[in-house]
Amino acid sequence: MTWDDFVLAFFSWQIVSEAWPILWDGLQRTILMSIMVVPLGFIGGTILALLSTVHNPWIRWPAAVWTDVFRALPPLVLLIFLYAGVPFTGLEISAWGAVAIGFFLNTGSYYGEILRAGIESVPRGQQEAARSTGLTRWQTMQYIVLPQAFRNVLPDLISNTLEVVKLTSIASVVALPELLFQARQAQSVTYNATPIVAAAVIYFILLWPMVRVLSRLENKALASRR
């Protein structure tokens, strides 16, 4: 294989320009999906984290088991179970529906675990001071604990958000035409690897700034922890 053949197979401008409409279509769906699942998971996670602070063990323990189970199940397994398994009961779930439910369960558990750690990182004296001025338990959570908790685990929250955006690529497996799915389509039509390379480049351009920011935050966090 010559160099020109190689370039033609992986980095063909002509293929890129031909496949661009379909790639653009997929990219939009990837972004839309991210905008949908990140807040969904965040809300689920906040609820789980708040439940884990409740004193009643009948609430706290199920929340902990829930969190661990959905952190132990690979998200792709969950997604396929919802998309390919559940319809056998006669309940049809669209690919979007399966993605929404699957990501809510999986991502919510991850955000939940991060936020729980954040809440625990706020010193007990903060709550005592707030309660001693007459703030209720919920006001204390809202004004004193949660703002500090979010700030303390910000790097982990960003890191998880990056993982969630990357994870949307598994929706291609249940035929949701996002970026990777469209790239695979284009590749099988053109018999050329360029569309997948193009998809990879798009993901990289999209997510590299986030990786850079994270890398800085993480180094700082580890350095300050010793």
């Binding site: 197979a9 990357k166 949307t168 997948i196 390379v197 990879a200 997510l207 590299w208």
Partner: peptide, 17 residues
């Protein structure tokens, strides 16, 4: 930055080219 599934697809579907 790259989703793992994209890397797998690149190796499995792309490299044969």
């Amino acid at each position: 930055a790259l989703p793992p599934l994209v890397i797998i697809a690149l190796l499995y579907f792309g490299l044969p080219a």
